[in-house]
Design a protein around this nucleic acid. Structure first.
Lengths: 302, 302
DNA sequence: CGAATAGTGTCTTTGAGACAGTATTGG
DNA sequence: CCAATACTGTCTCAAAGACACTATTCG
């Protein structure tokens, strides 16, 4: 541009402007991160030769302070002034699970007013995927009371109504989080509005069960995103240990998608994404299965 | 649970706790929304019988204050204490374009430190899609200087390096925003790290061109999301007027994806999503095309 | 042996890509 | 007429679904 310093309407240069800038002139919300930490673990096996069924689990912490004292909430906390959002997420993850360098992805930022009775809080949710073998290393740590809950959802009912220029579909879902000791159940309503060729979706908590804040909603949303992503990306591998059998990989897909897959088609689909090893999983009362590992050369992705 | 009121470690009930809660104890960032407002418009037609080529455009405003005085930025602003994030986005959209009730979707929240030299700013980007016919209603309004820019990106180079436990791929892209009066060009580097079966992506600005803040990065990210979404959702219709021909719809897909599509396959793909009318687009020096409208009964989507 | 999982072969179905061929207009 | 787009028919190819069939172990 020009050599003369740029000035604003009051004749200030950038240095002058910044020196006199009052950063406290606007009322500011608090910003937090909420962690959706998922893993897939083996349940008890009844029969020595049967495959142990797997379940999808999420980590929750029991609140030791108001509000929602004694209820279960997502791990998370305030973003401090000198750390990035992602660093805050990594820090929370580490203090909660003692694990670093795992899959971490920003999901959504929840910014409704009244989410927290104390003050205006805007919170960004991050999804983390932990492989169950790494997981066993983790001890209960500093986290006062953190527990894994098996996560399930159930379709309850659906209504579809015509409007002037489109339709409104309401869907009720039950979200269940089950533990050896506890059983939480929340109801969420998803409203999908189609008007003038524009689709919009809204999520409301009908019954928060015993889940703190609006976290039931965040969990349901994360579950939906996890399901979507597992179909068109390779995030499933983030839930697997270094070595795994194709049956185990298929089980992970099945427990997340909530439906059975055909082995032949599944194997074709993942064939290029994995590398054979010459190790076998044995002593199982049936034909041993070959161990595979992730193929890092697999580059044709999102 | 019990009939006795729950108390925390200091013996406070929830009411007592909230009454004495000091909401100002943590330093808080500023929160803003940034709007990525896209539309597809017809360019000049040279030949009376040729179809007018379309271009993807994005709305930018010229900064009238430091920092980045005189540069182009995304429309946006602070979230006020009593409005939700989405309401803030709608408000910004309305003050900028005078349009309501259009497609609006939250994309990502940018929370690195140092994004704004004034203070810590966390900002959530929203993508809005405007159909070009509605658009013509909009006048330059209160927005000091808002302009549409044609948006293009160009692949520059790519490097792939092996690391101990995976690979790192770096990709440089040029983002060009062109106008009758201005021409902005930024360079962005996307780093994709694959380590231990975990894929992670990072975006950096190599050269911000004349685009304020880190907005070149936000625009490039939004463009990528728009491209992804147009393939597996029906957001394209949000860019179309009430009535459109299938060729126009195909042009919108083509300009966003940056590649040509085969008409036969395209028509098969959208066949169920549209409804025929018995109106025709005429006076074009060739066979007239039938007008279609969006089919709101099309419900098998995300 | 036989229960149970591991893994393959192949037929069918579906959908996308390719491309030629027909239809229709206005200057 | 002819340039240009609109629209259809059909062949090919690739991926997904379905399902039967073979392979292998260990109590």
């Amino acid at each position: 541009m020009t050599d003369k310093p740029l000035v604003n309407k009051r004749g200030q240069t950038e240095q002058e402007y910044l020196r006199t800038y009052d950063a406290s002139q606007f009322e500011r919300p608090s910003v937090t991160v909420d962690m959706l930490i998922f893993t897939v673990v083996d349940e008890q096996e009844e029969n020595y030769r049967k495959l142990s069924p797997k379940s999808l689990q999420i980590l929750l912490v029991k609140r030791g302070e108001h509000p929602f004292l004694g209820q279960w909430a997502l791990p998370g906390g305030f973003v401090s002034p000198r750390e990035s959002l992602e660093d805050a997420a990594k820090r929370e993850l580490f203090t909660e699970t003692n694990i670093q360098n795992i899959y971490l992805e920003q999901l959504y930022t929840w910014g409704d007013v009244g989410r927290d009775p104390r003050m205006r809080v805007i919170s960004t949710s991050y999804m983390a995927l932990v492989d169950s073998s790494t997981l066993s290393l983790q001890a209960g740590d500093d986290a006062d009371e953190a527990e894994w809950f098996r996560i399930e959802d159930k379709w309850l009912k659906e209504t579809k109504t015509a409007t002037e220029n489109g339709t409104v579909t309401e869907k009720w879902l039950e979200l269940r989080l089950v533990n050896a000791k506890e059983e939480l159940s929340a109801t969420i309503k998803i409203t999908k509005t189609i008007a003038n060729r524009i689709v919009q979706e809204k999520r409301e908590i009908v019954d928060a069960g015993n889940i703190a804040f609006d976290h039931a909603k965040l969990i349901q949303y994360a579950l939906e995103r996890l399901r979507g992503k597992i179909e068109y990306t390779d995030i499933a591998f983030a839930l697997m240990p270094e070595l795994f059998t194709l049956s185990e990989l298929q089980q992970v897909y099945e427990v997340i998608l909530g439906k059975e897959l055909l082995a032949a088609a599944f194997r074709r689909k993942v064939a290029d994404k994995v590398l054979e090893t010459n190790q076998y999983r044995k002593h199982a009362g049936h034909r041993p299965s070959k161990y595979y590992r992730f193929n890092p050369e697999w580059m044709e992705q999102s």
